[in-house]
Amino acid sequence: MVETMQVEELQIIERIQKGDTNAFSFLVTKYQDVVFSIALKVLRNREDAEEMAQETFIKAYRSLSSFQGKSKFSTWLFSIAYNTCITSVRKKKFPTTSIDQVQIEESDEEWDSFGMSSEERSRMLETAMKQLPEDDYMLVVLFYYEEQSVEEISRIVGMSESNVKVKLFRARKKLYTIMNELMKKEIYSEP
């Protein structure tokens, strides 16, 4: 399934490289949410995030002739998005979220979602993700949502694989901590 999608993407890229510019809209539609949500998390402003996401896609289009298909298109695109984010943050001097804002509990290795429907669980996960610091949010989205491998993420963010693994482990713990807090609030707020 994943391989079929990659083959489909490569065929589209080939069409674009041959001059079919409109085929690029397929890739924009497919990846706009991931790119935009990462940008929004970093820039915290919809307008700026849309601008940054747009810049990412335009940069990707301009450099598409150099894309050789050695990595997944998504990995390549996300590395452009990541670098555009970094540049934007440096230019505008956005304050970044401190890691200490989410205190990791040693016990939060798991999350007991017993009795919740899958939809409720997903909504709670969405809420929890919004509370993650931006670097953790990015890693969680790339690893769990986009299913990028540790190796691919290390290429996107320019960190060593072991560093990515450690950061992912901490991000997952933070996610569980937040979700457990949300669960507690939910239980105590019930009439």
Partner: peptide
């Protein structure tokens, strides 16, 4: 669980703006 989540989306005109 991630399969059920919805990420933030840009405005409906985003794709046409980029294109």
């Amino acid at each position: 669980m991630m399969k059920g989540i919805r990420l933030e989306s840009p405005g409906p005109e985003f794709t046409s703006m980029v294109m």
